[in-house]
């Protein structure tokens, strides 16, 4: 007993140290991140993308849904020069040349560039909603599981196993069939009606979100749990507990800040997965409702004609690549900056 009381004060000091060290840790991380050029480029690209999505109406030169059927698949001259396989109609080929469109027009004569600009809204929303949902569900789940330990932990982790094995794609397809079909005749009621309305208002994105939410949180939950388990036994936590600090406070004030780094890294690095999931859903016809543009939908439509009009798939794919590239490098940069195991490597 005597030893415990003796130890407590030193631990308090340690906590203070840990906290002040924590602040400098974030500062250090920021310094490290700033030195990483590629991570910064990533951050700038993401920022530009956000600006593009927010100010889409100002940036897009044309209305994204305005069709000019006579100029279907029209392509500007410079695009023909990069894709030698495309031959202009005045040279005996099949491509209508028109410089009215910066990157060309799609099969209904709509401006590709404007659609890419508007399409960034869907991709970014998917990215942020995916990351947010996975963190909001995964972190509390993992914290509780890891902190409480024992049977609760075991039970919660087995539930994660179950969710891993659960066929999420099946669930999404069935959800979409159910809600989109029961919109019918305006006679749906209650939650069905509400969800259908949200789906309609969001251009069909709500179920993509639900799908991503359902499948994405387990990884974060596992990670958080592992980190919590490791942190739980640390001396300063034991000390805080012995001083009568309540469980929520311990979790919130002492454990969470210490494990946030790896969580942020993982959340950032998983974002590209959500973006490509949207593209996959578009490929199987479960993406956003037309005419709302999304990069995934544009890519899968363009891919069908990729031989004839490569620009229609390549440009949105390029946009997708840039954003995924940005998130990847930002994530890697964050990892190098934040991950404690990587510290001291320089």
């Amino acid at each position: 007993m005597a030893t415990t009381t003796q130890q407590a004060p030193t631990n308090v000091v340690q906590i203070h140290k840990a906290q002040s060290k924590g602040e400098s840790l974030w500062y250090d991380a920021w310094k490290r991140l700033r030195r990483n050029r590629f991570a910064l480029i990533g951050a700038v690209i993401i920022l530009l993308n956000v600006i593009m999505a927010v100010f889409a109406p100002q940036i897009a030169p044309q209305d994204f849904r305005k069709q000019d059927l006579l100029l279907n698949n029209a392509t500007p001259r410079w695009v023909l020069n990069i894709f030698p396989s495309m031959v202009a109609s005045d040279e005996g080929g099949y491509v209508t040349v028109s410089n009215k469109f910066i990157l060309g027009a799609d099969n209904l004569g709509r401006d590709l560039f404007s659609r890419i600009v508007y399409g960034s809204r869907v991709s970014l929303l998917v990215a942020f909603v995916g990351a947010t949902v996975s963190v909001l569900i995964g972190v509390p789940f993992g914290l509780l599981s890891g902190y409480l330990g024992g049977r609760v932990d075991n039970g919660m982790m087995r539930f994660v196993d179950l969710m891993y094995a659960f066929p999420a794609l099946l669930f999404i397809i069935l959800l979409m069939s159910f809600f989109r079909a029961s919109f019918v005749g305006q006679n749906a009621t209650g939650i069905t009606k509400t969800l259908s309305d949200i789906d309609a208002a969001s251009g069909g994105m709500i179920f993509i979100f639900i799908g991503i939410g359902l499948t994405s949180w387990m990884r974060i939950a596992r990670l958080t749990r592992g980190q919590t388990l490791a942190t739980r036994e640390a001396e300063y936590i034991t000390a805080a507990r012995s001083m009568g600090t309540t469980t929520p406070t311990i979790i919130y004030q002492h454990i969470l800040p210490n494990i946030l780094g790896p969580i942020i890294v993982t959340a950032t690095l998983t974002i590209p997965v959500y973006i490509s999931f949207e593209a996959f859903l578009s490929f199987i016809g479960l993406g956003v409702n037309p005419p709302t543009p999304s990069w995934g939908a544009m890519i899968s439509e363009g891919a069908a004609n990729i031989r004839s009009f490569p620009n229609q798939a390549v440009f949105p794919a390029l946009a997708l690549f840039l954003v995924m590239f940005a998130f990847n490098f930002l994530g890697d940069g964050l990892r190098d900056a934040l991950d404690p195991r990587m510290r001291g490597v320089d």
């Binding site: 698949n73 031959v87 005996g92 099949y94 491509v95 004609n305 004839s308």
Partner: peptide, 8 residues
């Protein structure tokens, strides 16, 4: 779209 290319 591919029809255009084939015909040309």
């Amino acid at each position: 779209a591919d029809v255009d290319r084939v015909l040309a």
